[in-house]
Amino acid sequence: MKTVRIEKVTDTVREMCMEVNYQLSSDMCKVFENARSTEVSPLGRQILDQLAQNLEIASKDRIPICQDTGMAVVFLEIGQDVHFEGGSLEDAVNEGVRMGYVDGYLRKSVVRDPLIRENTGDNTPAVIHYRIVPGDKVKITVAPKGFGSENMSRVFMLKPADGMEGVKNAVLTAVKDAGPNACPPMVVGVGIGGTFEKCALMAKQALTRPAGSHSAVPYVKEMEEELLERINRTGIGPGGLGGSTTALAVNINTYPTHIAGLPVAVNICCHVNRHTVREL
């Protein structure tokens, strides 16, 4: 049994919220720089250069990369031999988000009720996903999600007969519909299988997998590569103003599903694709 003080969780989440909003993660840096060297459109290159300048300023001056600093999505993988001491874990995460967003000059974008729409003033609550795993570690992933791209995300409840082509078409449809709205170049997270909610969660988790890495399942890896290439043939380009860089990565996660179904979720993200991981 390992004891983790709840304040440690709060401090860690606070720091992660700030870091992830000022600094592009190293995996995203790599795929972004790669795109700058391959983009064929002059305007597209100019836009990628602006985004590169933007990243420099954000990191140097600690100004958020984007004014939409997102709704904080937090994944907690908790070892089953961990004991938390000092208060409620959920409260500790939300306190970390509150402190990070207030102290870090991050935008407060959360409304208390989806229809009454009064801003909570501190960007809480976060959306928290818990998973209990073997061991005595706590793995925290913070992935604030902006809504320009979140609004363009989709769930398709396909039929088994739709098969592989149906899945590819669903992803391409979501990307084309998103077009310039999702601040391309995008990162595309896809969840295939499970149930209605499971595929959506997988799509979100897929976004937190390092860009440029691939699924361990050979056919899924092939699909990731093929879809990335096909998305980059749509012509949408940087900023949606034309070019050969529409997506920087396609990450697909899969899960067993029901004999009658083929759920597919497509979670679209912008070129920043904020995600950061720490272990306690």
């Binding site: 300048q53 990369i65 004014q67 900023g239």
Partner: peptide, 9 residues
């Protein structure tokens, strides 16, 4: 259009 995602710049 301004470039989406270039808020700091």
């Amino acid at each position: 259009a301004a470039v989406g995602g270039a808020g700091a710049l």
